[in-house]
Design a protein around this nucleic acid. Structure first.
Length: 350
DNA sequence: TTGCTAACCTATTCAAAAC
DNA sequence: GTTTTGAATAGGTTAGCAA
C-alpha cells in the first residue's frame, strides 16, 4: 500500500477515472431529468443505487445536462419562454446534511492538502479509505479548501488549472494552517485500522464518543465508489468488484464501512438520516466484521495497529520520523493507544 | 484525427453549526 | 450577529474513448 502523494517515484497519477454510461443508464437519467433537472439528495441516491454509479456521477450528469438544456433554450427558444421558465417557482430541494469531520479526519485531509492541493482519483480514494469519508465529500473538501486557502506560493498569479501531474513538487502551506498533530481526550477517532496483512478498514475506537451529531450523515450513497480495473490503482487487489451487465467499467463495494458511534447498536435504528443508508445500497464488506471481532477479541490488536500505523506514516509522510523505533511516539499514537487500551464497553454510550 | 462527454476546475452562493 | 466551512450551482476546460 502506498500513498501516491508521498513519493516522487510513482508514475503520474490518473486525475480522473472516466466511466462510460450505458445507453440504458442514460435513458433512465433522461427520464428523471425530464421529471426534475435538479434532483434532491434522496433522488440522486436512488438513481445511484439503481444505476450502479456514484452519486457524484449522477450529479455531474445532471449538471452537464442542465447546461446543455440551457444552451439549447438560449439558442432556439423565445425570450418569452425563457421568462416563463424563470418565473417558475423553484422548489427548494433537500440538501445533503452537513458532514461533520472528526479532528482525525480533518488532520489527515489537511496533511494531504499540504502535500498536494490537487489529489487525483487514486489519492482521493485512498483518503476515503483512511478517513471513512466518501470520496465525493473529499473532492468537495479539497475544492472548498483550495478556494479558502490560496496557495501562498502562487498568490501573485492564480492558476486556473491544476498541474497536470499531481505528483509534482508540492507546496507547503505554512503558518496557521499547519494541522494540529495532537488529539484532545474528547476527540473522536476513526482509525483507518488496517494491519499490513489485512484489507483496509476503519475502526472507530471512540466507541460512542464520536462528536458526530444525531442526524449527521456519515455514510452516503455516494460511497458507491467507482472502481475500474485500473493499473494505476494499487487497491485493485483489495477490492471485490462486481460487474454490472452492460457496463464498461465496474463498481465495487465501498472500500470500507464506517463504523458508527454506537457499537452493538443496530445502525438501521439510529434514524435521523434523510438519505438512504449505505447498507441499503451496498453490502457491508466482510472486512468490517473482521475488525469488529479483532477489535474486541484479539489481544494482538495493538501490535497490529502499531505496525500498520507506523508503515502508513512511513509511506504517507516520508519526511517525518514518527514511525521510527527511535523516535518518540507520535501524539496520535499515544492517544490512540490510550483509547485502544480501554475495553470496548468502557466507551459505549449508556 | 475528431467529436462526444465524463470528470475536472474556479467562482460564487447558500446555509448549518459553532462561537 | 458573526464566522467558519460543507454543500450546491454555473460555466468553462481537460482528457478518455469510440468512430
Amino acid at each position: 500500500m502506498e500513498l501516491s502523494c508521498s513519493t516522487g517515484l510513482l508514475e503520474k497519477e490518473a486525475r480522473r477515472r472516466r466511466i462510460i454510461l450505458t445507453q440504458s443508464q442514460k435513458d433512465t437519467l433522461r427520464v428523471w431529468f425530464e421529471k426534475n433537472p435538479n434532483p434532491d439528495l434522496a433522488t440522486r441516491g436512488h438513481l445511484a443505487k439503481e444505476l450502479g454509479i456514484s452519486e457524484s456521477q449522477i450529479m455531474t450528469w445532471f449538471q452537464k445536462h442542465r447546461k446543455i438544456r440551457k444552451q439549447a433554450e438560449f439558442a432556439c427558444c423565445s425570450e418569452e419562454s425563457q421568462e416563463q421558465e424563470q418565473d417558475k417557482p423553484r422548489v427548494k430541494e433537500a440538501r445533503r446534511s452537513r458532514t461533520h469531520f472528526t479532528k482525525f479526519q480533518t488532520d489527515i485531509l489537511i496533511e494531504a492538502f499540504e502535500k498536494n492541493r490537487f489529489p487525483g482519483i487514486v489519492t482521493r480514494e485512498k483518503l476515503a479509505q483512511q478517513t471513512g469519508i466518501p470520496e465525493s465529500r473529499i473532492h468537495i473538501w479539497f475544492q472548498n479548501r483550495r478556494a479558502r486557502h490560496p496557495d501562498p506560493g502562487q498568490n501573485t498569479q492564480k492558476t486556473p488549472h491544476p498541474p497536470q501531474s499531481s505528483q509534482g513538487p508540492t507546496q507547503k502551506t505554512v503558518g496557521k494552517l499547519a494541522p494540529s498533530k495532537t488529539l484532545t481526550s474528547s476527540a473522536s477517532v476513526i482509525l483507518p485500522l488496517s494491519p499490513p496483512h489485512t484489507p483496509n478498514g476503519p475502526l472507530d475506537l471512540s466507541k460512542g464518543r464520536q462528536k458526530q451529531l444525531p442526524g449527521t450523515t456519515l455514510l452516503q450513497s455516494s460511497q458507491v465508489v467507482q472502481q475500474r480495473s485500473d493499473d494505476q490503482n494499487p487497491n485493485k487487489g483489495h477490492l471485490s468488484p462486481t460487474t454490472t451487465p452492460g457496463e464498461q467499467g465496474f463498481h465495487s463495494q465501498p472500500p470500507l464501512q464506517l463504523l458508527t458511534q454506537n457499537r452493538g447498536h443496530n445502525p438501521r435504528e439510529s434514524g435521523g438520516l434523510a438519505v438512504p443508508r449505505l447498507e441499503d445500497c451496498t453490502q457491508v464488506p466482510a472486512v468490517n466484521q473482521h475488525f469488529r471481532k479483532l477489535d474486541q477479541n484479539d489481544s494482538s490488536f495493538l501490535q497490529h495497529w502499531d505496525e500498520w500505523f507506523g508503515s502508513m506514516l512511513a509511506e504517507w509522510m516520508p519526511d517525518k520520523e514518527y514511525w521510527s523505533e527511535k523516535a518518540e511516539l507520535h501524539p496520535w499514537q499515544v492517544q490512540l493507544r490510550q483509547l485502544a487500551s480501554v475495553s470496548p464497553q468502557a466507551h459505549q454510550t449508556p
